[in-house]
Amino acid sequence: MRLHTAVLRILLVTVLAGALIACGLLYLVSLEAVARWPELAGWRLPVYLGIVAGLLPAVAVAVCGFRFLALVDLGEAFSDRTVHLFRRMRMLLVVVAAWFAVGFVGFWAGTGLMHVTLVLSWCAVEVAALLGIGLLALFEGLFAGAARLRRDAGLVPAGGAGTIRARDPHIPFA
C-alpha cells in the first residue's frame, strides 16, 4: 500500500464514519422535530428511513473507491476494471440524486410544508451529486482513453490483468 492511497483510504473511512454519525444525529433531530411539530409524527420514520436508504448507494460509491485504490496499488489504474468502477460510481450517484429529488417532491406534496432550510439542504445534496456525476464522467473518459492507449501500445496483453473478472485477493470487497 502506497502512502497516497493509504491517505485516501483513511479519508474514505472518515467519510463512512461521518455518514454513520450523521444517521445517528439525524435520528435525534427527527425525535426533536416530532416533539416540536406533533402533526408531523407520522412522517418521522418514513422520512428518516428514506434518507438512510438514499445514503446506501453513496456507501457503495465509497466501496468502489476502495476497489479503485486497490487497483492503483496493483499498477492497474488505467484498465478496463477502473473504467467499469467509474461507470458504476457514476450510476450510483445518479440513483442518489434521483432518490433525493423524488423524496423532496414527495415530502412537499405529502405534507404541504416547505422551509428554506429544506430547500437549501436538498440543493446542497443535488449539487454535490451532480458535481460528482460530472467528475466521474470526465474520469471515466480519461481512464478509458488511457486504458485503450495502454492496450494499443502492448503494455498489457489482451485479456491481461486489467480485464480479469475472477476474484483478486489484493482487492478488498471484490
Rank of each mutant, 00 (worst) to 15 (best):
M1L: 11
H4Q: 09
H4P: 00
T5P: 01
A6H: 00
R9A: 03
L12R: 10
T14N: 10
L16F: 09
A17R: 09
A19D: 07
L20D: 01
L20G: 05
I21N: 13
A22R: 08
L25V: 10
L26M: 11
L28T: 08
V29Y: 15
L31W: 14
L31H: 12
A35C: 09
W37A: 13
P38V: 07
A41I: 06
R44H: 04
V47G: 00
G50R: 05
I51P: 02
G54P: 06
A58R: 06
V61L: 09
V61A: 09
A62E: 02
V63F: 14
C64Y: 07
R67C: 04
R67Y: 10
L69R: 00
A70D: 10
L71S: 01
L71C: 00
L71N: 04
D73W: 09
G75S: 13
E76D: 10
E76M: 08
A77S: 10
R81I: 03
H84Y: 12
F86T: 02
R87A: 11
M91K: 14
V96P: 01
A98K: 05
F100V: 08
A101V: 03
A101I: 02
G106K: 01
G106R: 07
W108Y: 13
A109N: 11
T111K: 14
T111I: 09
M114S: 10
H115A: 07
H115F: 08
V116E: 04
V116K: 08
T117V: 14
V119H: 04
C123R: 12
A124G: 13
V125T: 07
E126V: 11
A128L: 15
A128W: 10
A129R: 11
A129V: 04
A129D: 00
L130H: 08
G132H: 11
G132F: 03
G134E: 00
L135A: 10
L138D: 08
R148C: 05
R151C: 00
A158D: 14
G160A: 07
G162I: 01
G162Y: 02
A166Y: 15
R167H: 11
H170K: 10
P172T: 06
F173C: 13
